[in-house]
Every structure is written in C-alpha cells, then in structure tokens.
C-alpha cells in the first residue's frame, strides 16, 4: 500500500549473494517448503483419496474428522472434506497465482508508462491509482463480482483489477528514479525507441521490487478469493474453493466446527507461506519498504 522506494542497483538480482541470502532466510525456506507440500497435496491428493470431491452421500453427512476414511470429516451433503479441500486448493491457488500474474502485468505496464513518460500521462495514471487505492478495496471487489458472471476466470480478473495499483506505484517510483540515469540517457542518445528503453533497459532494474510485490500479491489474492467466495459472490458450487467451503460454515459453527476450521487453516497456511517467501525475497533482494 505504500510506495516502496527501492535502492537502485546495477547488479543483477539473481547473483549468488542474493540467492545465498534467501536460502539463509529460514522463514522463507519454510514458506517454500509449505507451499511445495500444499501444492503437491492439491495435485496428488484427489487421486490418492478414496472419495470424489463431488460425490454426494446424504447418509454420511456431518461426519466428524477421522470417521472411517473421511480423515477430515464430511460436509452437509456428505462429501469428503479432505477431497474437497485439495480440489479447492487447486482452484484457490490457481486463482491466486493467475491473479498475481495479471495484476503484476497491469501494474508494471501502468507503472512503466507513468514513470517513463511522466507529464500529464504520468499524473493522470498515478491519480487513478490513488483513486483506486482510496476505496475500501472490498467495495470494488464486491461490486465487480456482483456485476460479472462468477467463474474462476472472472474472479481472477476481478481480483487482478483491484490489486494492480501497488505494483504500479512501486514500478512508477523505480522507473522515475532510473529515468535520468546515465545508461538510460545513453540509450536515448543512441536513438533507441521509448518502448525499448522502457522494457529492455529500465524494467530489468526494477525486477527485484516487482517480484517481492508479486509474491505478496499472491497472498492477498488468495485472501480476496476466500472473502468473495465466503460471501457467496465468488467461485460457485459444486466447484470447491477454500472460500466457498467457508460459505455456510458459520451456520454450522456450533454443530460442525471442522467445516469452518479446516479450510480457514488451509488459507492461513498458504497465505502465511507466501508472505514468508515475500519477506525472504525482500531481504535477499535488499528491497526496502513494507507490505500491508
């Protein structure tokens, strides 16, 4: 949410010192490991478990965890919660990741354009960024989600449409500070096109902060998806997502608390992991600033 002022660096971000620092960041490593496990479980889980995530069995509804082979219990329609959780993980992680890619793309484009061009284009773009940022983000998300037909694609677009601003700010600040540097001036004198300078010369120098912001955006996007789906505006049943598994769980909080606790824990683990990774990357890449 804040403009992150990055130290401009000439060296490439993937030099061994950076990699070394990242590997020494225990939390980041932990995050990587957890994400790896989670991803693996979501990819393989549905094949290993004895139940289909969509199979309804009304006789087996509300089975608590560890009933027979229902290791995480069943939901109000008697579907296996573990199978649904991993299936949901695929959806939620995919939505989070795609939303990150899309919003980073938009944010980078806007940021580069605004930072390099400056002038009225830059001002207009950055004021628009400010405008988007002064909304309680939930408004835009809910309104857009209500306006569009819900599907994983649409949810991705909605989340991306409301989370590109931070990347834009970061990139804009970075590019603005790089614009007047010698190598850019040199490029200009050599007669290189604006596009070339923007994307080939300046952008690679801003990659560090972008990666950090992108990682944190994944975390944010997963949270967003969860909240939209929790309110019923997001991923539609029978396709499970961590968020829509929580939808309705409040109703059964007294009688079947595992319905609320398990998916929520999954979200927390995934989001925490991405935040850990982001933090590690920030230290490793020596990007100053904070995420919020």
């Amino acid at each position: 949410m804040t403009a992150i002022v990055a130290n401009s660096r000439q060296e490439r971000w993937w030099n061994s010192r950076t990699a070394h620092r990242f590997m020494n960041h225990h939390l980041a490593l932990l995050g990587m490991v957890m994400i790896a496990i989670l991803t693996l479980a979501c990819v393989l889980g549905p094949y290993v478990l004895p139940y289909d995530s969509l199979y309804i069995d009304l006789r087996a509804r509300f089975a608590p965890p560890f009933t027979g082979h229902h290791y995480m219990g069943t939901d109000p329609l008697g579907r296996d919660l573990a199978a649904r959780l991993f299936m949901a993980g695929r959806v939620s992680l995919l939505v989070g990741f795609s939303a990150m890619l899309l919003s980073t793309l938009i944010g980078t484009l806007v940021g580069v354009l605004a930072g390099y061009r400056g002038g009225w284009i830059g001002t207009t773009l950055m004021r628009t960024v400010d405008g988007f940022l002064s909304f309680p983000s939930i408004f835009l998300v809910l309104a857009l989600a209500a306006a569009l037909k819900p599907s994983p694609m649409m949810i991705t677009v909605v989340i991306a449409a409301t989370s590109w601003m931070e990347v834009a700010r970061i990139v804009e600040a970075e590019v603005r500070s790089l614009r007047e540097r010698e190598f850019v001036q040199a490029g200009r004198m050599l007669g290189l096109s604006g596009t070339h300078i923007m994307f080939r010369e300046i952008l690679p120098n801003a990659v560090g902060p972008i990666i950090v912001a992108a990682t944190l955006t994944v975390a944010r996007a997963i949270l967003m998806e969860a909240y939209i789906s929790f309110l019923g505006y997001g991923i539609q049943p029978p396709l499970p997502s961590w968020g829509n598994m929580l939808n309705g769980a409040q109703q059964y909080l007294g009688t079947a608390p595992w319905l609320a606790i398990i998916p929520g824990a999954a979200i927390t683990i995934a989001v925490t992991s991405f935040n850990f990774i982001g933090d590690g990357l920030r230290d490793a890449l020596d990007v100053r600033g904070d995420h919020s």
Binding site: A219, A226, Y227, L253, I267, T268, V271, T272
Partner: peptide, 20 residues
Amino acid sequence: VGAMVALSIPTFWFGLVGIY
C-alpha cells in the same frame, strides 16, 4: 513471525473461530 501470520489470517475466519 507472529506479525506475518497475523497478516495472513482471513479476518472473517479469525472472527468465526473467536465466536466458536
């Protein structure tokens, strides 16, 4: 670590767990 985890917990879910 605590701060990072706190930033990662979905607020509504934290509320639900609290109510529970």
